[in-house]
Design a protein around this nucleic acid. Sequence first.
DNA 1: GACGCTCGTCGAAGCGCTTCGACCGACGAG
DNA 2: CTCGTCGGTCGAAGCGCTTCGACGAGCGTC
Lengths: 353, 353
Amino acid sequence: MTGSPGRPSPGQVTIADVARHAGVAASTVSYVLSGKRAISELTRARVLASIRLLGYHPNAGARALASRRANVIALVLPLRSGMQVPVVMQFATAVVTTARRYDHDVLLVTSDEGPAGLRRIAASALVDGVLLMDVELDDARVPLLRELALPSVLIGFPAEATGLTCVDLDFHRAGAACVAHLAGLGHRRVALLGAPAAVYERGTGFAHRTRSGVVEAAELQGVQVVTLPCEEGAADVRRTLTALLAEHPDVSALIVQNEAAVGPVLATLPTLGRQVPRDVSVVAICPDPFAEQSGPMLTSVPVPAEEIGRQAVALLMSKLRDEQVPEATLLQPRLTVRDSTAATPAVHAAGGH
Amino acid sequence: MTGSPGRPSPGQVTIADVARHAGVAASTVSYVLSGKRAISELTRARVLASIRLLGYHPNAGARALASRRANVIALVLPLRSGMQVPVVMQFATAVVTTARRYDHDVLLVTSDEGPAGLRRIAASALVDGVLLMDVELDDARVPLLRELALPSVLIGFPAEATGLTCVDLDFHRAGAACVAHLAGLGHRRVALLGAPAAVYERGTGFAHRTRSGVVEAAELQGVQVVTLPCEEGAADVRRTLTALLAEHPDVSALIVQNEAAVGPVLATLPTLGRQVPRDVSVVAICPDPFAEQSGPMLTSVPVPAEEIGRQAVALLMSKLRDEQVPEATLLQPRLTVRDSTAATPAVHAAGGH
DNA sequence: GACGCTCGTCGAAGCGCTTCGACCGACGAG
DNA sequence: CTCGTCGGTCGAAGCGCTTCGACGAGCGTC
């Protein structure tokens, strides 16, 4: 019975078992499952019953080999330090959950395998498409992506994005929204505490775009703004804040775009003699849970990690079906007002000159 | 040329291409790659050269089908809220990186697909083995794991762990180490600020084991200890701390096992009139980067997420090779002394009565 | 000098699935 | 009544790889 190579299966239930049990051909079972050909209601029911009864699950490798579709997508994550961990996590969760809805699984790949990793994964047909996070303005993987003809969706925008599919929060407008909110409250001097310096140097899009949004809006609204990077340690935050307030004592509002810094900022300000929001208003660009758990609850522009994840997967699935998709998808920011921002006290405004 | 089904490959380079180019049989190429049979140095070199030249990467599906090994492992992550996000992240990174060293990839699976997800993945031969995180004392997936005969390694310990392979930090000793350190500094009344209540209720092992370690060691060393769960918001932390200090004003040291609470605790204590470490010592059980970035740098027992990840993968790989592995692997805690703990001030000790 | 080795290589048989073309009744149109 | 059509099913080929048995050549042994 047993031919020599390709040893007999262990416990595995195969499509042949199902076919035999249901009294049909294997191809019929396949068509029942894929719906690619019409099957009579009767046959379909019998097959489905057999499948359930035998506990049949198609062998992924065989399916991938025959159909040239692995039903797996790769999620390429930074996983380097200094990144905004909770956002990444939320994002990953959303991606996995959404992918499952499309009957796909998710392969986790770290960026540090770099272009070679992408190439390997593409060439071995391990995955049908990739989701790239933490895209930099000048990203080494982008040219490769174009060359590979591997369906992909980027989270974030590289400098040259034509021909690619990118999704992201509109950080430019997010920055602008913060400024607008503060300006509306009467603030005329604000500071942007951004990502760590390394992130800017790396040319990471969201940091740059937020900054430009802030600067631009400030100009338009006649607000003076000073922008500076911000490291993540409590000690670093204190140092940065102290220096900032020494140099610009009349800054009455802070925009913070660094989750890890938000806590320390809120903790440090009072020790520097500034109550929030009485003396200084704070707006954050950070995930909602963060904003809701902080000292005074934070007025914030949430980073909709989940929504981005869902959209990214949906776009990728469309591409896998060879559908046309928009090149750029920019999610509109919404600013949620909470307890960390207030109107400039007239007293202060007068004393500030 | 083109037979009807199994359409011609697109760009893919196959093993046949390599064989033709090198002037050998396909099987020889396969043996060069797998090393499962002796190959002359000459042939091996020629084949390797062809592989490199053509940019050949074996097709993952075909390989999996023929060899019954997917070279993929599943990483089952909690991805639910309330979990210690950075630890999970560090862990995932270590797993992916280590798995790659063993020439395996990692499939990301969320716990919320539950047992059905495991079953699906096992039956479809998508992965060769699984890594389970966030194992609970009474975990629904454990019985399934036994039934499935799917090689697995658990991070954490269920109540009944015989026959399984588990890895974790020895949280019992970690708790004890914190108490010993504090007792050595003269502290006689300490409090354990643990995980959120929900985590205890869920029966999560590490929380319970830490607590028992703390309580046991305290008893042995004649230290009085009060243990209480701790939520994650700044407001909640403040409430918890205020209540604690009101009820037990003579507590002179805190053990904190909740990364998200560490920041708020450090920020809140001074506002309650307690300087760290002058009036209150704080020991944390948390990842090192955290401890190093906090207000005063924290004396801590780091959770060696990376090490755990590496070990877990190594164990799983051994199991895949049908090697015998120990059932329990407990990593020994090391306590790093930093700036947040100090000897009880005699003054205080005197005034405390 | 024949025998049995081992070493290095090849050919063929599948792994479990998808998919194409063929086929066979039933049915509506002419 | 015949022909074309279409819905429903089957059989076979093949996806790209691994692995088993076979085999030829070279070599040491008695």
